[in-house]
Structures are given as structure tokens and as C-alpha cells.
Nucleic acid binder design. Structure first.
Lengths: 283, 283
DNA sequence: TTGCTCCTCACGTCACGTGAGGTGGC
DNA sequence: TTGCTCCTCACGTCACGTGAGGTGGC
């Protein structure tokens, strides 16, 4: 009993009840050095916590509820109050917002998967050779949509100032290594006409040869495009017509055109053998 | 190569690229019986997946993104399309909404923890003996707020019809076992005056003896009340005045009174030794 | 003395990821 | 033949939870 009311010591059980952390969790936090008891009896091993540790324990509990890793929590509780601590917390909150976005995407993709029919309107078509302004970058799967959007709008803004004109819908190339590793070099491109000498300083000039592809129009939010990849890849495999090379997407109707996600249209193109006769309609 | 375009077989690597599931994950799903390859070569052990398995794999991927446990996913993909499957998915989505609520609480509690000062305005006071209409129930920590709210509003609606009048703010009792186990028998009560013979059929009649408590007014959202428990319990420990018995809360300003969460007021009462002189002000 | 709390291992859980070490097919 | 893909263990990861078996303090 501390008559002056400062830093009374509590058993692990009492501390557990005050902080709503389990005894097992408290022992674990001791083991990994996140919350050391004020005093450990050297003969019995009994842990004693000071009441001044209650706020720290509450902070740890809330951060764990937000699934912050213990290694990050160590940094937060190790640094004194102030900008460092707040920054670490804010960084984690930003990570969580990303996670919430991913969750929202998964929910709507799940709905699409359960409700919408499997797309089967595949066409074979000859892609003519293309000259385009392009940007390349090593990007991972999660960041790819944002990266492509940003690069394309950068290119599109520059077409006119460079004295060029757009000759077709904007697109992107995805090497198969990108799908295997979840990361790889992407190419965002805008087909153009005109004199490219000035443009070559600021952008890559891409010359795509003629190729033959199987194509399905993906309808709806771009974040569900992997559903369409599954359908297209399946059809190509079933017909045994696959060829090497990157897949290609053309962005026909995007958030820049309409706010209605159901109206978005993306052409997904899978390379196939060049001897195939272009056809339209169902497989 | 299947000339008729049905159920072509894919290697695990090809299947992985079409479904955006890792090879390791696919092997794991095989091991635990969630997604069995169409064909396993008995001599080499090579797995072959049919293209008709792509939609199932996509479903699994989306459910895993929503953190559905594999045991639940087994039920979903094991049952045919239809009400069973949809129910299982909807149940999980409901669980996720609860999780999102908890996350929102944790974020605002964290903010309160980082911004607001540690409450120290504790008072000792004599709680007079109380007669009250009550409901008891075994509830766990997560459900306690909803349970108490529901029971209290049930009691409050019945006071007048039973010919009684309210004699004080509504409250609840929390035995210490509730905090240890995260579950226990709670008592929600409304102090009343009048003839209790009729009420005894529908409610418990609670007679609380006079006791002495240390009390702090918790300001703000009820879901952060555990912060105040930590402060109050610390102060009681520091003064070495704790006594046995359940803690008690009185709900002074609640969502029934105002929409402004910052204005909510809850008295949190911790039992202390009966020989203490009532005082007000800081500890 | 009884019962409650505390202790330390050691192992389990969950959904994979990470190598190690080796084989199969073009 | 080379390189790529595939295979099977076995172990690691993360944050604890779950006993087992035993001790300490009132």
C-alpha cells in the first residue's frame, strides 16, 4: 500500500483486469520486451506492474485491436510521446485504410462472382502494329491500377503539346512474369500519330508488331478484371491456342468517362497463334 | 489439347497464373481438401487442374481476402450453388461488419487515448441502499453494451405501466469475474419507488445495500469506458482502498439523450472500504 | 490446510511462406 | 544437355492460447 498514491504495484492478474489484456498476452509482451514489469521477484519470478504502466498497456491493447504488429508497437511504446510516436501510429492507420479498400474490392468482386455469369464472348482478332508513347515501371499487383492510371493521364496530357494526335484507346502490357511474381515491369501506352522526335525525350516510343489475340470485354469495375482473366485464360487453354508474349489491356470506358462503375469497359487481350482466322461471337 | 474446348487440364503453375493464387496456397488447399486437382499423376505426383475449377478457385481467393477461415470455405465450396452457400457467405459478411465496427471503436479509442488527459477527478461517496427493477444475464464483453442497452430500455418502458416511478439513474453491475473471463453474469437495473408486487413477476427485484465507492465520471463514447476503468482502478490501487464486490455504472447521459457522443456521461463506481470519509475533488 | 494465484516449459493454432534437396519433361 | 517446372518433406512465422506440472502467499 502506497500512502502517497503513486506507482502502486499490481500483480499480473490485477493488472490484467485493469487493462483488459489477458495474463498470457502480458507474459508474452514481457518475453518479447514490449511491456516489462516494473519489478520481477528474482526468487519466485512473480511479475509486478506499476499503475503508471496502465496507460501504456491500454495503448498496446488498442494498437493490437488494429492489428499493428508487435515489432511496430515496440517502436511506438519505446519512443516517447511526440512526433515519432504519432507518425508510427498514423502510418499504421494509413495501412489500415488500404486494407479497408481491399476488403471493399473483395466484397464487390465476390458479389460479381456470385451474381454475374461467366463471360464467354471471346473474339479472335488481328492487332495491327502500333506506335505509341509509353512509360515503363516495375510495379506490384496491388499498386498497378493506380500506377497505370497515373502514367496514362500523364501521357494523354502531353500528346497535344507535343503536336501529336491519339490514334486509338490507351492500353497497358502485362508480362506473364508479372502474374507469377505479383510484381514486374509494366508498360502503359497511348497509340499516337505524328512526328515523334520531340516526344522521345520525355517518353519511351513503343513499336508493337502486329499480333493475333483472343479478346474478352471486361464489364464493370477494373478491380474485378482478374475474374475476366480467369475466363479468358480458360478459354484459350481449352482451345489450345495460347502463344507467348505479354497480355494487353485497352481501357475503353474508365472513371475518366463516367462515374458509373457498371459501365466501365476494358478489353483484355491474350496472345494466340498467328495462324488463327479472326472471328467474332461466342467460343 | 482439347479440340472441343471443354475442361482442358492446366499445370499448377498455369492454374496459379489464371487464379492469382500462389502455387504454395494451391498445394495447401489440396492438402486440406478444399480444392482437389482434377487429376494427380500417381507416379510423379504432378497436379492437373481443369479449367472448370477456375471459378471455384476465384471464389476461394475472394473469400480468403475477406479472411474467411478455410474450414468455412470448405463448407461454401462443398455445397452446391444455392441458399446454403449464400447463407454461409452472408454470415461471414455479417461477422466482418462486426469486425469493422470494432475497428472503428479502436480507432476512436486510440485517438482519445493519445489526445485526452488521463481522468483524475475521483470522488469517494456513500451509495445509499437501492431498490430496483433488474434483469440478469450471462453476457460476454463484446455483447455487453448492446445487452445492457436493450434490457434497460425494456425495464424503463415498464416502470409506468407497473404503477412505479423512477428514483434514480439506470445502472448496471459488473462482477470482477466478468472482467477476468471476458464473460459473466451482468445485472441491468433501474431504481424505482412504489409497490413492487406486480413487478416481481416480470423482473428481478434488486435490493442493493449501502456501500462506499470511488467514482469517476467517464466522458464520451461508452465503448471507451475501459480507459476510465484503468484510471479508476489505478487510483484505488495507489491509495490501497479497494474492497470486494462488483463495480457499478450509472448511465447519466446516453444515446437516448443526445446524438453528441462527446456529451455522454457514465459514472464508474469501484467498491472501496466502508470507513472512508466521502470527499470530492482530485485524488 | 485449502484454494487461489502465480510460475515455466512445451506444444498447438492458422494459413501459408521459405528453403533444401531432388525429379520430370521438353 | 540445359533450364524450367514440379515434387515432398521439414521448418519458420505471428501472436498468442492451451494444458501440464509445479510453487507461493494468505
Amino acid at each position: 500500500v502506497n500512502a502517497h498514491g503513486v506507482n502502486a504495484l499490481l500483480t499480473i492478474g490485477e493488472f490484467s483486469r485493469l487493462t483488459f489484456l489477458s495474463v498470457k498476452a502480458l507474459r508474452h509482451y514481457h518475453d518479447v520486451g514490449i511491456l516489462e514489469p516494473t519489478l520481477v521477484d528474482s526468487s519466485t519470478g512473480y511479475r509486478s506492474y506499476g499503475t503508471e504502466q496502465v496507460p501504456t498497456a491500454q495503448l498496446i491493447r488498442r494498437l493490437r485491436e488494429l492489428e499493428m504488429p508487435l515489432d511496430d508497437i515496440r517502436v511506438v511504446v519505446g519512443s516517447a510521446d511526440g512526433p515519432d510516436r504519432n507518425d508510427a501510429v498514423l502510418v499504421h492507420l494509413a495501412r489500415m485504410e488500404l486494407q479497408l479498400e481491399r476488403t471493399a474490392v473483395a466484397v464487390s468482386a465476390l458479389r460479381a462472382l456470385l451474381e454475374r455469369p461467366w463471360p464467354i464472348d471471346v473474339v479472335y482478332r488481328r492487332e495491327p502494329a502500333v506506335v505509341a508513347l509509353a512509360r515503363r515501371g516495375v510495379v506490384d499487383l496491388a499498386a498497378s491500377e493506380a500506377w497505370v492510371t497515373a502514367e496514362l493521364s500523364g501521357i494523354l496530357r502531353s500528346v497535344r503539346p507535343l503536336g501529336l494526335s491519339i490514334s486509338g484507346p490507351a492500353g497497358a502490357l502485362f508480362p506473364s512474369a508479372f502474374f507469377e511474381a505479383g510484381e514486374g515491369e509494366l508498360t502503359a501506352f497511348v497509340p499516337v500519330r505524328g512526328d515523334l522526335t520531340m516526344a522521345a525525350d520525355r517518353f519511351d516510343v513503343l513499336e508493337l508488331p502486329e499480333t493475333t489475340v483472343a479478346m474478352i470485354v471486361h464489364e464493370g469495375a477494373y478491380s474485378h478484371v482478374c475474374n475476366t482473366y480467369g475466363a479468358l485464360g480458360s478459354l484459350v487453354a481449352e482451345h489450345g491456342v495460347g502463344a507467348d508474349g505479354p497480355t494487353r489491356e485497352y481501357f475503353l470506358v474508365t472513371p475518366a468517362h463516367t462515374d458509373d462503375a457498371a459501365a466501365f469497359r476494358t478489353e483484355v487481350c491474350w496472345p494466340v497463334r498467328g495462324d488463327l482466322v479472326p472471328i467474332g461471337g461466342a467460343a
